[in-house]
Design a protein around this nucleic acid. Structure first.
Lengths: 209, 209
DNA sequence: GAAAAATGAATGAACGTTCATTCAATGATG
DNA sequence: CATCATTGAATGAACGTTCATTCATTTTTC
């Protein structure tokens, strides 16, 4: 955004957040730039100087906030994973009809892929997997476990079929969804509202047997 | 396998395959080495000298057979795509009951992921996508089109549900399958025979409505 | 022994990272 | 208030490394 304007942010009102004013801005700018570029070109395809340029900072500045490219990727991954999960399940009323909850979640996921394509794409990237450390993988696991829990609960309540393990069921549905979105992005298919609704219904029926 | 033994392959019995004896061998050795390494480390993660070492040839030799790494990746991709499709549909009797054909194909795909994990993994790699040229993408499209055709045919015959477009249906099933196998490989899940059979049945039911 | 094939050290481009330097902001001095 | 001293965030040229590719040389073939 801003190139190298010294007085742009907080001239003298530094008393608010202690006295380290622009730190968060630069960090965010770097993360945002990394997200935009990585989502498009893959982690391996994007050099650090390009990230710096896109963020509007010097190359060396990145290393004041992130010890290495690997750590940058990991922190980006973790922050986004947490953010997405928070927004995806925010105000989700689990006491409504299971079918309604399922539809609501499906719609939210679709909306997310549309409104935040970079975030979705980055998180689904396979290219960054070798970079991810144990902490990031833990975050990913923890993000998934409540979903498995819900699948299991719905099986117990007799809503979902019981002849398939909850993890397997969830894996099938998630794979179907991801591949549908990817096929559209890769230009193999063009999705209309009807397609997405039909896919959602098919996945629901897959779960209920 | 063999490290760098110069006489390992065909010392003097060169008369067998016409008279261009080791040419095919070297080319194949390079392709096989590339496959094994790329499948594990990704195209971007594997340097050419390592491919040469694994193939038991000099680095420069690779460039006698492939003009560049990019072309090597593309030829590997194409040959495997054709090979897999041939083996996957070989002797497939389309006149049997659709359900039997579906089960047979599902079983063949599972078997392929087990018997040729490197091939399957390389072909499903997202990492090589930026390398693929138009010809490779054409091969991929052509490999897919008969499947869509079959889905459409089964819809016409009233076997598959008609309220979802064939492309969408196929995308869902393929995504479910790929994600199931990936989840196992990534250690998120461990699949037993029952799981795979149950997943297959669920996908069939997804198609038939 | 001429021609073709194979080789791997050499090459230079590109990468992630570093660090000597800059300079706006702040504090100290008179 | 004006001046000077100090600070540390920011910088980007430079560094060492890695990689794809080349080519002078050697080995093999016929």
């Amino acid at each position: 955004m801003n190139n190298h304007s010294p007085t742009a942010n907080s001239p003298q009102s530094a008393s608010a957040e202690g006295n380290r004013p622009r730190v968060r801005d630069k960090r965010s700018a770097i993360l945002r730039a990394a997200l935009e570029l990585f989502a498009e070109g893959g982690v391996n395809g994007i050099p650090m100087p390009l990230v710096a340029e896109q963020a509007g900072v010097g190359t060396g500045t990145i290393y004041r906030y992130f010890a290495s490219k690997e750590l940058l990727v990991n922190e980006l991954f973790r922050e986004l994973k947490v953010l997405v999960n928070r927004r995806l399940y925010a105000d989700l009323d689990l006491h409504r009809q299971p079918r309604e909850v399922f539809d609501e979640l499906w719609q939210r996921m679709v909306r997310y892929t549309r409104e935040e394509p970079d975030i979705y794409r980055f998180l689904e990237l396979q290219d960054h997997r070798p970079y991810l450390d144990e902490q990031s993988r833990a975050v990913e696991r923890e993000a998934l476990s409540p979903i498995v829990g819900q699948y299991r609960a719905l099986q117990k309540r007799g809503v979902f079929r019981k002849d398939i393990r909850a993890e397997v069921l969830m894996t099938l549905v998630w794979g179907a969804f991801v591949n549908l979105i990817r096929a559209e992005r890769d230009g193999h298919i063009s999705l209309h509202e009807d397609d997405i609704r039909a896919a959602r219904d098919a996945c629901w029926e897959l779960c209920t047997g």
